[in-house]
Design a protein around this nucleic acid. Structure first.
Lengths: 221, 221
DNA sequence: ACCTGAACACCGTTCAAGT
DNA sequence: ACCTGAACACCGTTCAAGT
């Protein structure tokens, strides 16, 4: 927290990109994505809104920096001890990414809305692709499996966070779905309602991830 | 286009929900999600912005109605001729959903940002779950497979549409990724760059979908 | 070099008042 | 019943001017 990274003389700058992104993530956790405005962030930094544009050309850039920050330490989450086979390593990476997104309110929405090509993002992707290439998969297969795992993980996390926090005043998502399904004639949805409205998302995620890894195992022969 | 569904006497209402949603989708296709504002939609309907709120309590409700409208005819896309085994039927449904989202500019973003429980959405989900239940899967498995397929499909379509339309002025997504990867040391990403930067998204989607269906096949035994 | 102050061009939403 | 007009409380972004 002390200014160990402020080499400049004179009055220290009130605005530095790292602290700004951290403050933005704090604001996100406290109030959600809707309430994260450049003006409110500027307020939290003790500065005018326009000053932010010296470090972030656009709000989208700020959001991208936040997404990148969320993945800090992701690629090294399991250390260099590459225990387990490629299947377990793949699952561990996916679980780590899910945890990173769930760690911040609306984390999945921020991530899905940006396209970071920062070091944290690329190192993670490189490790995931590396696990698959080392396991004997084709370059093409490894790259496409990356898409599948990331898309599945982001998609599930998006759903999970959306279900957790309904718009204030409205009933929670599971209740809305239950009402809609029972009002119409959807025999298969009715039969599966308990699972569809379950708020325990971890088994849902693990099922989807299991399908993908199983599919990969088959494809490798 | 003629007013066949206007039972009211006197001056016909300028605003009816169905035409409003259709106009909103037209506006979306022409200018994208960013440019879709209540004011611009009102303009296109020849009305003041406030008038829209008699039919849609909130912009979010309008977007939800648009998402629901996008899936019109999805559940019946293959007719009642249930040709092929459950695997082919599942793939056909996923492909139909992808096509429905790709049919509108930013279609995936609109869908991902809403939670429709309308008839088109529920009929589609009911059919997908039905295919799996009829194939012998557990209620729990069927429901969770629905999540996996939908999340994968939405995730892939989100990526595809994001890659197609970069923010004006900026270079396209593949070029940004190529530059970032070659700038750092990411051996596995470098090796798979041709696939990672490919703009042909159909094989990417089919690979991911293939993994899921293969995984389901294994799980059924 | 870095930030302020103030403006520009918008937003979503509400609601009295008209017809 | 349905829409207008006008306002409220904001937005992201820009940029001269200050220090």
């Amino acid at each position: 927290m002390s200014s160990t990274s402020t080499p400049a003389r004179g009055r220290p700058a009130r605005l530095d990109p790292v602290r700004t992104v951290e403050t933005a993530l704090d604001l996100l956790d406290q109030s959600g994505l809707e309430a994260l405005t450049m003006r409110r962030l500027a307020d939290a930094m003790g500065v005018q809104a326009g000053a932010l544009y010296r470090y972030f050309a656009t709000k989208q850039d700020l959001l991208t920096a936040m997404a990148e920050r969320m993945l800090a330490g992701l690629a090294e989450s399991d250390g260099e001890a590459t225990d387990g086979d490629w299947c377990e390593q793949l699952a561990a990476l996916a679980h780590a990414m899910r945890a990173a997104l769930l760690a911040h309110r609306d984390g999945a929405r921020v991530f899905a809305g940006t396209h970071s090509t920062g070091a944290n993002t690329l190192r993670f992707a490189d490790r995931l692709v590396g696990v698959l290439r080392d396991a004997g998969f084709t370059d093409e297969e490894a790259a496409r499996a990356l898409f599948a795992v990331v898309n599945l993980t982001v998609g599930h996390t998006l759903e999970e966070q959306a279900a957790r926090q309904p718009e204030s005043g409205a009933p929670a998502a599971p209740e809305v779905l239950r009402a809609a399904v029972t009002a119409g004639s959807y025999p298969h949805l009715s039969a599966t309602l308990p699972t569809l409205t379950s708020t325990d998302f971890t088994p849902h995620f693990e099922f989807g991830l299991g399908l993908v890894t199983e599919g990969l195992r088959v494809r490798r022969g």
